[in-house]
Design a binder for these strands. Structure first.
Lengths: 154, 154
DNA sequence: TTACCTGCAAAAGGTTTGCAGGCTA
DNA sequence: TAGCCTGCAAACCTTTTGCAGGTAA
């Protein structure tokens, strides 16, 4: 990430925290700075290690809580999108996925059109492409039904 | 999944196991059957619960080991593609990801072209689309370099 | 028969929770 | 000052490992 962009994110960070009435504690700031300083999409553990030299007493739980808070407030986002357990699939051929963000159901999607996606040049310019897939986050029909039913009760 | 497809997968299962010299134990078969009977891409835990009535003494560790073996042999595949820890990103705007399957590095990719992807009708027909992203698995340039260096040593 | 596979138990991550005290706004 | 935030400890959940005995081919 370019220095300019980093500075911009940092400015936004203060702005958003003020708006959302989130305290800007030294720890939070350090966690956020560590995140924008690391282009590899670090894990909580990696962020923890990065700021430990400046905050020797900080706890990993604080890092988790802070990241969760920032995420819930839309200031940062989670990359591993699906869930916290491994999920298996009997289909080994190439296909795509539709994931319900409510009930966590994962559905397969076969699509010749998506398979034929034009791959941006940067992807294969320096790296060797292994495969790719498209991932749709949705609220599934069942969850929509449930939501509707609950709204009517009220 | 249609019954026909299931039967086909099951036939393939026996064939592949024979080819790969993997024993077809009752437990393995049960695990595989449970996987193809469940269209929601179950977790090891869910498969374990599904077969426990038939194999009351089976251990969760066996389910894990079996799924890992089948996955390594290309008989099944893992859905949660990235890794077993959460990864965060300071960019909250819509973007795509390039993931190195070797070093687990995750890189951001912004692409108006990908954003403009034609979404298959089935996706939004019954579900409410929240968002989507394209996920490229690659071997990154650094890992390719490393690989090359190691090959030369041999 | 032999190598692989299972089941148990324990350990090893990774993540979450509760609470007392401290700090930000 | 009030409410939020931190740090500690413990719990929890998922996954991995080692090993002894059992079973498929």
């Amino acid at each position: 990430m370019e220095e300019e962009k980093r500075q911009h994110l940092l400015d936004d960070f203060f702005k958003k925290c003020r708006q959302l009435k989130l305290s800007v504690t030294p720890q939070r700031l350090a966690i956020y700075k560590a995140l924008i300083a690391d282009d590899t999409h670090p894990s909580p553990e990696k962020i923890y290690r990065a700021i430990r030299s400046d905050f020797p007493t900080i706890s990993l739980a604080t890092v988790y809580k802070t990241l969760e808070t920032l995420e819930k407030n839309g200031i940062i986002s989670v990359v591993t999108p699906i869930h916290n357990t491994v999920r298996y699939d009997a289909m080994t051929e190439h296909h795509h996925h539709i994931v319900c963000v409510r009930c966590k159901k994962i559905m397969d999607l076969e699509s010749k059109e998506l398979d034929a996606l034009k791959i941006p040049d940067v992807v294969a310019k320096q790296n060797r492409l292994v495969d790719f897939s498209v991932h749709f986050n949705v609220i599934c029909s069942e969850c929509l039904e449930k939501e509707k039913a609950e709204t009517q009760i009220k």
